[in-house]
Simulated assay, not measured.
Amino acid sequence: MSTSEIATVLAWHDALVAGDLETLEKLSSDDIEVADADGAAQGHQALRRWAASVQTTTGIGRMYVHNGVVVAELTPAGEGSRQAVAFRVVHDHVTAVFRHDDLDTALSATDLTEADRVD
């Protein structure tokens, strides 16, 4: 487990929730890939468009990490399903982020398991 990877994801998520696009870009690689079930795009301009299009949540629930991959369960602001986001972190920068419909899908897509859970 890497505290650095977790800290990067938490700071990235905080910037997203705050709408702080400047910090979001600083925490992201220049060629960041952003994706969800509707498609993928690359770069800071794509990140800005993606950040404007996603509904942010109040926080992060369970987290899983292994070899630079971090999966974070999102806690909804109200009633609703819990989505999850998979991140690739390299040298304290998010290089890829993919929003999944649920935690099980995110874990399956990244080959992470309960053994990778961070408490």
Rank of each mutant, 00 (worst) to 15 (best):
94 V>K: 01
93 H>V: 04
58 T>D: 12
49 R>A: 15
96 A>Y: 06
87 F>N: 12
104 D>V: 06
53 S>E: 14
29 S>C: 06
9 V>E: 01
110 T>H: 02
104 D>P: 00
75 T>D: 13
110 T>D: 07
8 T>I: 00
95 T>R: 05
82 R>C: 13
67 N>T: 14
86 A>T: 10
23 T>I: 00
27 L>M: 05
9 V>P: 02
74 L>C: 08
119 D>M: 07
26 K>L: 12
116 D>A: 05
72 A>V: 03
20 D>T: 01
23 T>G: 08
40 A>F: 09
81 S>W: 00
61 G>Y: 08
103 L>F: 02
112 L>M: 03
9 V>W: 01
109 A>D: 11
2 S>G: 06
51 A>L: 09
54 V>E: 11
33 E>S: 15
78 G>L: 13
82 R>L: 10
104 D>T: 08
112 L>N: 04
81 S>L: 08
111 D>Y: 13
76 P>V: 02
19 G>L: 04
80 G>F: 11
49 R>G: 14
73 E>L: 08
4 S>Q: 15
82 R>S: 15
40 A>L: 08
47 L>M: 04
81 S>I: 08
18 A>Q: 04
5 E>P: 07
9 V>H: 01
48 R>L: 07
5 E>R: 10
92 D>S: 13
113 T>M: 03
45 Q>G: 12
63 M>R: 14
83 Q>V: 01
59 G>T: 08
44 H>C: 02
13 H>S: 12
29 S>F: 07
19 G>D: 03
102 D>E: 09
39 G>K: 03
53 S>C: 09
93 H>C: 08
118 V>A: 09
42 Q>G: 02
24 L>V: 00
82 R>K: 15
53 S>H: 12
117 R>E: 07
18 A>G: 01
38 D>S: 14
62 R>M: 11
109 A>N: 07
13 H>A: 11
104 D>W: 04
98 F>R: 15
112 L>V: 04
93 H>M: 08
3 T>L: 14
91 H>C: 10
98 F>Q: 13
102 D>V: 00
88 R>L: 13
75 T>R: 14
28 S>N: 02
100 H>M: 07
99 R>S: 08
46 A>I: 09
106 A>T: 03
13 H>P: 00
89 V>T: 09
34 V>W: 04
95 T>I: 08
94 V>S: 06
4 S>W: 06
44 H>F: 09
67 N>E: 15
73 E>R: 09
31 D>G: 14
